[in-house]
Simulated assay, not measured.
Amino acid sequence: MLDDRLGYLLKHAQMALAARTAESLGPLGINGRELAVLTVLGAGPALAQQQAAAKLNVDRTTMVDLVDALERKGLVERRSDPKDRRRNLVHLTALGQKTQAEGNRLYQETERALLTEEDGRDLKRLLRRLLEASTSEES
């Protein structure tokens, strides 16, 4: 049966989580992908778009679209890199910082509504193991 296949379960679990996340983030005017970008950009020193794209494992065009959308919403701004004026760094605005913090809070609530803390930890541990195994086979 399909419901005994890992790929089927992963795909449909991700789709269900994405739908719940979209619903919970809706009042903030962002989606899960945009929250991921805000989270990466808010995690440390400002990054260039290419650096953020690498951390998120998305292509350059997708990253430009995501940053453009966040910029239109007033959540991020591009500023010249003081070390290299040819490139821009992406910074969270004050509204972006507030939205990122609230978005992460809502996201955590969504996870807790779906799984106990222990089950969530176990699932994440197993998924990391799956990713590590698939990455080590590619090398």
Rank of each mutant, 00 (worst) to 15 (best):
L126K: 12
R86I: 00
N88C: 06
L131R: 09
L89R: 09
R105L: 11
V67A: 03
V90W: 06
R86Y: 04
E117A: 15
T135I: 08
L66T: 04
L75W: 03
L126G: 01
A69N: 14
P82R: 11
S139Y: 08
T116R: 10
T110H: 00
A54T: 02
T116Q: 03
R72Y: 02
G74N: 01
A101H: 08
K55H: 12
A69R: 15
T99R: 10
E137T: 13
D59W: 04
E109R: 14
D68V: 09
R105Q: 10
K124V: 14
D122P: 09
R125P: 01
S139C: 07
D122F: 13
G120V: 03
L70V: 13
L66F: 01
S139A: 04
M63Y: 13
K98C: 00
L92P: 01
R78M: 05
R128H: 08
D59H: 14
L127G: 01
K73S: 00
E71I: 04
N104A: 10
D68S: 05
G103C: 05
L106P: 01
T116A: 04
T93I: 07
R87G: 02
K124F: 06
R125Q: 14
L115P: 03
L89N: 04
D122C: 08
L95E: 11
G120F: 12
